[in-house]
């Protein structure tokens, strides 16, 4: 059971992850997140093409709306308000980041085979891709300095969890509900950052400065 169309979507997801790793402009990162929203919505539809119901449509639409329009819009507005510099400012350079990204791929494949999951998934790649997106999100979370990029990394991580969720949509609806809750948390997080941190205290946008507290 390996539908080429689902494969295409998954490959595009991996590619967007990699673009995220390699891009040096904040604006581009936001666009990547927006693109992933579209892909996620498409994935939700594609996975349940035979059993379309209101639930699925709602989820797809919500994903599209929140991730493609709402979050990017808030973030772009926040950037414009706070006059944030476009440079990403990585702790680990783009070249090594990509290399690490390449190494994470076999790792997530391996992890994917170790997880005990129901067999009848639409594509054997879907779990590795979910894990991969999460790993990339985590990696970006630790390797990028600015608060705005941290938010973006968090969104990527959350996208990974969503992929995981939609894979199990039919089997374990509860898990998906939990995922949606996490979405909401993400939304609150984004708003919080947008409204308080970035908007008001521009000096604190660099999260590595948080360690001043220690001293």
């Amino acid at each position: 059971m390996n539908d080429p169309w689902i494969q295409t979507l998954l490959v595009l997801l991996i590619l967007t992850d990699l673009v995220m790793l390699g891009s040096s402009r904040v604006g581009k990162c936001i666009r990547v997140i927006a693109a992933q929203g579209v892909l996620l919505a498409a994935l939700i539809l594609a996975l349940n093409i035979n059993s379309l119901n209101g639930h699925v449509l709602l989820l797809a639409f919500a994903s599209l709306f929140v991730k493609t329009f709402l979050f990017p819009w808030i973030l772009v507005r926040a950037i414009r308000r706070a006059d944030v510099d476009q440079a990403v400012d990585p702790l680990i350079g783009f070249g090594p980041s990509l290399l690490i990204g390449a190494l994470l791929m076999p790792l997530s494949l391996w992890l994917g085979t170790r997880l005990p999951l129901p067999d009848a998934l639409a594509s054997s790649l879907i779990v590795p891709v979910a894990l991969y997106t999460m790993l990339i999100g985590l990696f970006l979370l630790v390797s990028r300095k600015k608060a705005i990029t941290q938010v973006l990394s968090y969104l990527l991580l959350e996208n990974g969890i969503t992929i995981f969720g939609v894979a199990l949509l039919v089997k374990v609806p509860l898990l998906v509900e939990l995922g949606t809750l996490l979405d909401l948390l993400g939304a609150v997080f984004v708003m919080g950052i947008a409204l308080f941190n970035i908007n008001q205290t521009f000096e604190h946008i660099d999260s590595s400065k948080l360690s001043f507290l220690k001293e």
Binding site: Q7, V11, L15, A102, M105, L109, L125
Partner: peptide, 10 residues
């Protein structure tokens, strides 16, 4: 190389 690796994966 990344594109080719993905293809190989598929």
């Amino acid at each position: 190389a990344v594109l080719a690796a993905l293809a190989l994966l598929l």
